[in-house]
Nucleic acid binder design. Structure first.
Length: 274
DNA sequence: AGATGCACCTGTATGC
DNA sequence: TGCATACAGGTGCATC
């Protein structure tokens, strides 16, 4: 579920609610979602720490404490980070509850349990989260046509696969990759090394445009995604291709097709995307 | 090094 | 209705 716009929205909704608050206690209902360190030490290191910052890198959410330690969260497909009252019903699949100094709670839940948490101590090198392997952020200057063109020139995979690769670019998942390729008017099975510089420029522009709009709409709620306050996103109403098989292209009225690319469902307009 | 397939989980939709 | 199967927004690992 959560790709860059969703994680960004969670960060934005949680930031005013968590900044300056202290974690007063941690209840690990399911310890196996904690990947590092061991659950007991995880709880010990977080309890009584003050939250000083929230940030996002790709699809990772990081909560930084005053002592420099960082809680890193990846929500994978169905994970949620919800700010709740202790009186709120504890939904099934709630795995970790962080008690806050304001009397409320931050709850990590995840139906499929692919999502996970790490705690990195202030001086500890990040060798376990996978964040170090991420490519540039889409809105960084580093993500420019020349960077992408050089990288794609060496690849023989499809463009869809390349854009899904977090080492190429951080933050795109299956929904936004399809939306980006529609906006760039490119067929998802186009081979990377055959893409012109002009087309690469279109991709860079499309990535930023699609993500900007999706963030403005507070993400896409197709099924499970909710922001930090439990609210759905609205971008599902603005999608051009994703999940629209058989429906008419918003631009040319051709029926949207669905194919498999790199093992993933892929939606595109056969007329607009050549 | 890079590509491919599968594993990790549970819920839901579909078809027989 | 009941059951089997396919599929779902993501990543990491073994294998070639």
């Amino acid at each position: 579920m959560p790709e860059l716009p969703e994680v960004e929205t969670i960060k934005r909704t949680l930031t005013p609610l968590l900044m300056g608050k202290k974690i007063s206690q941690v209840n690990t209902i399911r310890e196996d979602v904690i990947k590092h360190p061991q659950a007991k030490q995880f709880v010990q290191e977080i309890t009584d720490r003050n939250i000083v910052n929230l940030s996002r890198r790709g699809k990772y959410l990081t909560i930084t404490f005053a002592d420099g330690n960082r809680l890193v969260v990846h929500l994978r497909m169905t994970g949620r980070m919800l700010y709740c009252s202790p009186l709120d019903e504890q939904k099934p699949h709630t795995h970790v509850i962080f008690g806050l100094s304001d009397g409320n709670e931050l709850r990590f839940s995840d139906v499929r349990r692919f999502g996970c948490l790490w705690l990195l101590e202030s001086m500890e090198e990040d060798c376990c989260t996978g964040m170090v392997k991420l490519g540039p952020e889409p809105f960084d200057e580093q993500f420019c046509p020349q960077y992408l063109a050089d990288l794609l020139a060496k690849k023989k995979t499809t463009i869809k696969q390349a854009l899904l690769d977090q080492r190429v670019l951080a933050g795109l998942g299956n929904i936004y990759t399809d939306e980006v390729l529609f906006r760039a008017a490119m067929h998802p099975q186009m081979i990377c090394s055959q893409i012109s510089l002009l087309k690469v420029q279109k991709i860079v522009i499309a990535v930023r445009a699609v993500l900007t709009e999706a963030i403005q709409h507070k993400g896409t709620t197709f099924r499970d995604y909710l922001d930090g306050m439990g609210e759905k996103g609205a971008h599902q109403l603005a999608l051009f291709v994703y999940q629209r098989e058989g429906e008419l292209c918003r631009v040319c009225k051709t029926p949207i097709q669905r194919i498999k690319v790199a093992g993933r469902s892929t939606f595109f307009c056969p007329n607009c995307q050549k």
